[in-house]
Design a protein around this nucleic acid. Structure first.
Length: 271
DNA sequence: CTTTGGGCCTGGACGC
DNA sequence: TGCGTCCAGGCCCAAA
């Protein structure tokens, strides 16, 4: 569930705690998550100072004084919480997997019931291959031209293209559906139909890129204003059977399956 | 090359 | 109430 806006909210919450902090200890409650932790995981972290906490797509990147990078991904169900230092060993709650104990006192706890998350340490020079992603959707590097370049000649449906992390970083199942609805484009449409094989991209590619930016900006705003994430703010996601929110449309949201994932859209106004 | 599908996981929703 | 079954979905990798 956590996509770019949710991960960005986590980054903003964690950054003030981690920035400049020294890692005094790391406690592992199991040997890995989706993959095993590297053997030198603790050694790579203990004693390091966190220079900065960045986000790339759905990844959180803690840059360490050693120039190594702690790579973190929330997967489906991961979360962090900050606890006050406890005297002696902390008794973990269910699905707590990693404690990052800071010498300033707090403990950053990673909890992940489904264990789809990632915790890894990579050399700074290897970060681009370990976290190989397309442009940030909210950056200048991502626009209608960039999107059209990937759509050109592709028979893949637009939904899949938006969720391809090599095309644009951080878009998951929810915001792909949301952006397509705002752009009035069917998720089933082939990429090639919104991009000419050569020359200027069609207007639809620009509309879709702009819609994605809008949807993500709005979601980040919602996150940070703490208005909670009830589903009510979604236009189409998980709303099959209800009326299309577009003024004057009158259509009904449907759910389809693409690449064994749910897609929600309005067949009436999304073409 | 592109595209698809299975596996990893657990909690919650559902049917009986 | 307590089973069993299915679904949710990001990412990686194998297979088509």
């Amino acid at each position: 569930m956590p996509e770019l806006p949710e991960v960005e909210a986590v980054r903003r919450e964690l950054a003030p705690v981690l920035r400049g902090a020294r890692i005094a200890n790391v406690v592992l409650y199991r040997d890995g998550l989706r993959r095993k932790f590297p053997l030198d995981f603790r050694e790579s972290l203990i004693g390091q100072t966190v220079r900065a906490l960045d986000r790339r797509g759905k990844y959180l990147l803690a840059h360490l004084s050693s120039t190594d990078v702690l790579v973190m991904h929330l997967g489906m169900s991961g979360s962090f919480r900050v606890e006050r230092r406890s005297v002696g060993a902390r008794s973990p709650e269910k699905h707590d997997h990693v404690d990052i104990c800071l010498s300033s006192g707090p403990v950053v706890v990673f909890n992940d019931p489904r264990r789809f998350g990632v915790m890894d340490v990579v050399r700074g020079s290897e970060i681009d291959e370990r976290v190989a992603l397309g442009p940030e959707p909210l950056s200048r590097a991502f626009d209608g031209n960039a999107l059209a370049a990937h759509c050109s000649g592709s028979r893949a449906p637009l939904k899949s293209i938006l969720m391809d992390q090599a095309v644009v970083a951080g878009v998951g199942n929810i915001y792909a559906s949301e952006a397509l609805h705002l752009a009035r484009l069917s998720p089933r449409r082939a990429g090639s139909t919104i991009a000419t094989s050569s020359g200027r991209p069609r207007e639809s590619a620009h509309r879709l890129a702009a819609a994605l930016k809008h949807v993500l900006h709005a979601a980040i705003r919602h996150q940070t204003t703490g208005s909670g994430y009830t589903d009510s703010r979604f236009r189409v996601y998980d709303r099959d059977g209800s009326a299309c929110p577009r003024r004057g449309c009158g259509g009904t949201i449907v759910r389809i399956v693409q690449s064994s994932r749910s897609t929600f859209y309005c067949p009436r106004c999304q073409r």
